[in-house]
Amino acid sequence: MATTTCLLSSARCSAKHPINFKAHDLKTALASVVKPPTQKLKNPSLKVEAVKALKMVSTTILDTMVDFIFQFVDQPMIPSQKNFAPVEEIGELIKVDCFQGNIPEDFPEGVYIRNGSNPLFGGLKLAVSVFGKTDSLWIEGEGMLHALHFKKDEQGKWSFYYKNRYVETDTYKMESKRKKPAFLPIVEGDPLATLAASFFNVLRFGQEYKIMSNTNVFEHGGKHYSTAENYIPQEIDLISLETYGNWNPGRTWSRPLTSHPKKTPGTGELVTVGFEAKKPYCIVGIVSADGKELVHKLDLQLDQCSLFHDVGVTNKYTILVDFMLTLSPERVMKGGSLFKYEREKDARIAVIPRYGDADSIKWFHIEPCVS
């Protein structure tokens, strides 16, 4: 497990005085209390079993500590968020017999698919502890795919079928196996509570937050992907809604990927962007038309960790809008939100030649465009 810097909520910011801490150190220390003398075991199979037993014991100790320190509580949902309440996974294709309106004559057969936030275990949770409270944002539920199939028979009569299924990300599998909430919310909350929650998430799972995959579904290279801003996409099947696994083009992308990549006219390449709250703050990438490799990568060389939610493309240029929404884990330590809108700064638009470098970027300042 990698070294965690700042130990914190998102540990994704270049702190002036970072605390270097190996997340597995405490786990190793806890395990040493019950560590069997594996070095004296001559039978390799016995050594393997001893290591498995050690890992199980240390995991159990950590889980017990978290269950003792933190209590998961249902997070209230305000009226404007009722549309984001979770629904049950039905897992099978259901015929839709009740509908209104008419289908245009030239409408093609096919499937309409979307994903959205659908929290496990009845809804979003907050965590209460001796350190204080941490909250979830309304966007933090696990991704669920919703598919509506349009089929027309030889007489031109339409039939409609619906199916839904969770995007089975790595973290979804972790919590489903446990059959209870496991990841502690860290985006908002009291400073000490956020610090402790981030620490225990890294210690137990190797990362600070869940993979949401609840924002967009897109196609590239003949394959389909579900995605959100906080991780790389997951490949999915449009018919079965099965999740095939994570997609990292060329295995050379080392950060989250925007939820809204765009195909370039003519070449069919995919333009994407990834941001993190540590340098390099923002990277623009170009994926080959077949989706197999990353053919270009550009560091925007920003001086702050801005959120670029969308991408625009033309035949020759990539266009990004920086509306001054920044990410700062340091702000969470002071009891604020991970996100902040920099109202005192002008928004700006970046126009970048398709394969340009940082010096070729043209910035255009505009009035702030987020209220």
Rank of each mutant, 00 (worst) to 15 (best):
E89Y: 01
E88Q: 11
V130R: 15
D106M: 11
S136T: 11
A147P: 09
K152T: 05
D97E: 13
P108T: 12
Q100M: 11
V87H: 07
N118K: 02
I90E: 14
G156E: 10
R114I: 05
P119S: 09
I103L: 15
I113S: 03
V87A: 08
L120F: 05
G116T: 06
V130F: 06
N118I: 08
K133V: 12
E154H: 12
F160H: 07
L120V: 06
G116E: 02
Q100K: 14
F131I: 05
L145G: 02
F160W: 11
W158K: 14
V87N: 08
I113V: 13
P119N: 04
H146Y: 07
R114Y: 03
G143Q: 03
Y161L: 06
L93H: 04
Q155S: 15
K95T: 10
G116W: 00
Y162S: 05
W158H: 15
P119E: 04
S136G: 09
N115Q: 05
Q155Y: 09
I90Y: 11
V96I: 11
G122H: 10
L93F: 03
Y112L: 15
E92I: 07
F160P: 03
L120R: 01
G141M: 01
F150D: 01
E105T: 15
E89P: 05
I90W: 12
Q100E: 13
S117D: 01
N115A: 04
A147N: 05
